[in-house]
Design a protein around this nucleic acid. Structure first.
Lengths: 223, 223
DNA sequence: GCCATTATGGCAGATACTGCCACATTGGCA
DNA sequence: TGCCAATGTGGCAGTATCTGCCATAATGGC
């Protein structure tokens, strides 16, 4: 409940100069850079171990040791071992939130959301780019590991609540109900989820389909 | 992987007489009745404690004690404390599976699925019937408890895999792709999820809207 | 170079969950 | 009716997750 809305944009518009530098987005800073580096090191260790031994057989102690930190420190970076495997999705979410800021409140919610998603998907068009490779790798893992899938769903559910509230404010006008917003969001998210699954399946089958195209056709099929 | 498909119906068509009686669905039997009773007693205890103290503050030991069993026995009935709160959804799932058996393989997947869901929803039309009351109560709890929401999503995700496979077999013909099935299922499920949420919200606000109507309008909005 | 802030690690403790074994209960069958 | 195999139950030990607390070390501003 006490979380701030993820779409108010304050974290990006505030603090033009260094100022108090409470938020890392504006001024990276040395400390923050180290922190991010540690975070990615943990994630890489986690992904490697998950791939090699499976999620069940991998312990937090093992991940922490592989990343060169203590267990206690691990839990200061991630709330669970599953979370450590989802940095690609956090990047995706960040891009999504940035895109949602460009939404036209006078437009049709469903169409606007689909436009934003399509735009974010473009960032994964090149299957050989690091962004796409990371995302593909994690999703392959998720496909085989119910625990990771559950963690992702939980992650999404948590975020969805805030996003729906923010969107409701943004679209706050007559003729657009809460039901409509929620519905648009959930159905869009469902199509995206399926697009990701199909992308992974086809890539594993050796095809070089790209994500934006799959999403586009899925979106069309859904109508 | 080694789970049997939930839609092959063998558990219902097999064993006309008592025979070996491996499955409880056909012949309830005394032992099975006791088992079910214990199961519902555990669930009721769990729901009561969750309501009163919250999910976090409720321990498995507490639930087990309230239900008059040991912790060890609890874990023979449910895999986690959150699972114990979802008997209403398991009933819903059972009704859904029964409905899916009536699907016309020659029909349109999306339309067939929506028909089945609509039919299952009818079982919750009377807000005062015990079925609807239980479902409403649990969903109120889920609304406030992220842990329960996560557990439900996990539960659904687990089931979805099997159902999609079964439906793919059933619709196995040219012109119906795996993508189409998966998409139909996910989008239908999304609409259902929203319908439940809206139902709970409106009932809590004092309105006496009923579930099938909400679902029908949500379905219409989604198109 | 000093000091407030912050990151880290170690430890204890609560809880979740599982495997194993002993015992009790049950239901079928001679 | 009484025996036997199958099944349910409880206790116990052990592992893993996750958190609070405190001492210590590193950092960055002044």
């Amino acid at each position: 409940m006490p979380q701030k809305s993820p779409l108010d944009g304050a974290s990006r518009t505030d603090v033009p100069g260094p100022a108090t530098a409470e938020l890392p987005a504006a001024a990276p800073g040395l400390r923050e850079r180290r922190r991010r580096q540690t975070r990615t090191e943990i994630s890489q260790a986690a992904l490697r171990l998950f791939q090699e031994y499976g999620v069940d057989a991998t312990t937090v102690d093992g991940i922490a040791h592989a990343a060169g930190i203590s267990q206690r420190t691990f839990f200061r970076y991630f709330t669970s071992k599953e979370e450590a495997a989802l940095p690609a999705h956090q990047d995706f979410d960040a891009a999504l939130e940035a895109g949602l800021l460009t939404i036209d409140p006078a437009g049709n919610p469903r169409e606007e959301l689909e436009r934003v998603y399509q735009q974010v998907m473009q960032g994964y068009a090149d299957n050989d780019a690091p962004q796409a490779r990371s995302m593909l790798l994690v999703n392959q893992l998720i496909r085989k590991e119910p625990l990771l899938k559950a963690a992702l769903l939980k992650h999404n559910a948590t975020r969805t609540t805030g996003l729906v509230d923010a969107l409701t404010d943004r679209f706050g006008r007559d003729g657009v109900s809460d039901l409509q917003i929620r519905l648009a969001f959930e159905t869009c998210a469902a199509v995206v989820r399926v697009a990701f699954e199909v992308w992974v399946t086809r890539r594993e089958a050796g095809r070089d389909d790209n994500l934006p195209d799959i999403y586009a056709s899925a979106r069309q099929l859904a109508h």
